[in-house]
């Protein structure tokens, strides 16, 4: 009886953790990228194109989900603090000023995200934390992973 109780306890704990991180958005990169933890400000600089290099030989490539994806809505709201229209104008303006050579690449699915993150050194993307493609590294934000208390992309 005691073992069954213990098993049920761990099952409930695991499921509760999965439920907690399911609403979060995870920032993912290739496993060999030399970064594990970024501050929220650094994440914002990455996604706004103000930081364009991981290092001198490694350029950041942004992958953004297509409109209507829940993850995109959350990133626009929390990181960019912009509406769809403002977001589009922001990147057109950024390229026009030559502050960025090009805008982010649009991705349409987790599978496509995974394919491109694997294929492009320096690619960074965001996915639903409960659906992180296998083999990608989830970056901590301010020392926290998705599902942990205080994680900002919730």
């Amino acid at each position: 009886m005691g073992r069954l109780t213990l098993f049920l306890f761990f099952a409930v704990a695991a499921l509760t953790s999965a439920v907690a991180s399911a609403g979060d958005v995870a920032i993912v990169v290739r496993a060999d990228l030399p970064a594990d933890n970024l501050s929220f400000s650094e994440v914002r600089k990455l996604f706004t194109g103000d930081r364009q290099f991981w290092s001198s030989n490694l350029r950041v490539t942004l992958l953004i989900r297509a409109p209507a994806a829940r993850e995109r809505d959350m990133v626009l709201k929390t990181i960019y603090q912009m509406t769809e229209a403002q977001f589009r104008q922001y990147w057109i303006s950024k390229v026009f000023r030559q502050e960025a050579a090009s805008g982010p690449k649009i991705v349409y699915s987790n599978e496509m995200t995974a394919e491109l993150v694997f294929a492009i050194p320096g690619a960074v993307a965001f996915v639903d934390a409960s659906q992180v493609p296998k083999g990608l590294k989830v970056l901590k934000i301010d020392g926290r992973l998705p599902g942990e208390k205080g994680y900002p992309l919730h």
Binding site: Y108, E111, M112, P133, L136
Partner: peptide
């Protein structure tokens, strides 16, 4: 959420600039 070693073979998809 923790990383895993194996990589899936994702199917081809389409993309376009922002």
């Amino acid at each position: 959420v923790s990383p895993a070693p194996a990589a899936p073979a994702p199917e081809a998809a389409e993309a376009k600039p922002l």
